[in-house]
Write a protein that binds this DNA or RNA. Structure first.
Lengths: 256, 256
DNA sequence: AAATAACGGTTCAAATAATGAACCACATCC
DNA sequence: GGATGTGGTTCATTATTTGAACCGTTATTT
């Protein structure tokens, strides 16, 4: 792995659940030597991608990341555009709604709205979603470039639950259904007792760039709920796509 | 420079004004060899910090940055907390209001609200503000740790305009005034014809972590405007500080 | 339409930067 | 007091990065 890759993999150790980590901890988790880990952290800190708490000596992600993310957002106002519609969908469904964006053969959760009820599906910001075992992933693949689909289906697929589809053929079938319906359904593919629907958000070229998904406890979800949420997700995704691409008709080419 | 530093300095070439750059361009601006530049870009792309447009082959900042920035925000909800108050201050003053956060001996502009009028001060997201020649910088220093102040005042200070203060003693005086008033005033320190006021946002330890500033064309700004904006900025900064630190009284220790 | 220049991307011997075992100093904890 | 945990540092050894020269394409220019 390149030195740069190592440095970035240090950044990836920080999560919502554990946003601050010590040097030894980082070294242990990354598998790098303590000296190496520290040198990388110093380099990252020097550019503001990591900060060190003056008192606790713990490391955390730095302000430079906010800066870079905002520059990206200025070019690509994905969050800005999508968040209001995620909120609307969340209040309409009273279930967890999460927004993801494609990045390096996975989907990256960039926003989440949780309903104000105790029994709900919990999704963390920053969580990484595999493509083959989530509603978001399936619908993403359904509207993705062939290369991306091929790349996904030719690697061995992990089974997270007894329900996870790992056969390329089965996944292709799911994708086909999603393409027809406009939304995907994933029944406990990543976690037992969770059922999700998702719709694809399209870039100007007509290919998916991200997804919007509704996740709910299976116990209280009926077939009618699924259909209703699916259609609502499609409407939200379509609206986000249109706002992103300035009503460009090409955006709907594949979804039509 | 470490390889990691080089990779990050590539990220820093992207701005709001130029969010997409080609390989040769990046190599030229960074001063790295084309082969090196590309290897770094590949490493960054492999982790989602950079994306390459499939059609134009241009590079841009990647979705992974949004992810990391959101994880940071979850720990440190600076933007989430501050943006509404930035908006309020912008509509109250009808001038440009910008929010910055400290990062590696500069302030990083993380949010901006522009008034809906043609003649205004324009600030870009991601813009880096020097500490000695901006209202934000002065008030930051006024409430910063001694080390940070020392680090700033012991390096040679650039004069951006004829009005820029570059004497450590003059800057220390400005800082003192800012500490007394609660807000700083910077009269054309960075750009001719622009006058700004700023107030410090404090962390739980009582030291500044960022600033909120109002910037306006000097031509239409009276002494009364300055005082009014200053007090409004202080109120906004104090509110943000309190919300961030959960009404923790310690937050006001130094501002009291 | 041929020539030129600029683009993105690749190669491999040479040069340079990264590595990690052993080492502090300090803080708990038993 | 001894054992184990931190964060941080050193420097000979080692592995990675480097960049001139290369290729194939795609605009410009003549």
């Amino acid at each position: 792995m390149s030195t740069v890759g190592k440095a970035i993999s240090l950044l990836e150790l920080f999560t919502v659940a554990e946003p601050e980590l010590g040097l030894s901890d980082l070294a242990r988790r990354s598998g790098f030597d303590k000296a190496t880990t520290r040198r990388l952290l110093v380099a990252l800190t020097g550019h503001g991608l990591v900060e060190q708490d003056a008192a606790t000596r713990l490391y955390r992600l730095g302000a430079g990341l906010s800066r870079l993310a905002r520059i990206r957002e200025a070019r690509f106002p994905f969050l800005q555009t999508a968040v209001p519609l995620v909120r609307d969908l969340a209040s309409a469904t009273a279930e967890t709604v999460h927004l993801s964006e494609y990045g390096v053969d996975r989907l990256v959760t960039v926003h989440v709205e949780h309903p104000a009820r105790a029994n709900r599906v919990n999704v963390d910001i920053g969580q990484l979603l595999p493509l083959h075992s989530t509603a978001s992933g399936i619908v993403y693949l359904a509207f993705a470039r062939d290369e991306a689909v091929k790349a996904c289906l030719t690697t061995p697929l992990e089974a997270f639950t007894a329900h996870t589809l790992t056969e390329p053929a089965a996944i292709a079938r799911s994708m086909g259904e999603a393409r027809e319906r406009g939304y995907s359904i994933c029944d406990q593919g990543l976690e037992e007792g969770v059922i999700s629907v998702a719709a694809a958000i399209l870039a100007a070229d007509g290919f998916a760039l991200g997804t919007i998904a509704v996740a709910a406890p299976k116990a209280r979800t009926t077939a009618a709920d699924i259909a209703e949420r699916g259609l609502a997700a499609v409407a939200a995704a379509r609206e986000i796509s249109m706002r992103l691409n300035g009503d460009n008709l090409q955006a709907l080419r594949r979804q039509a």
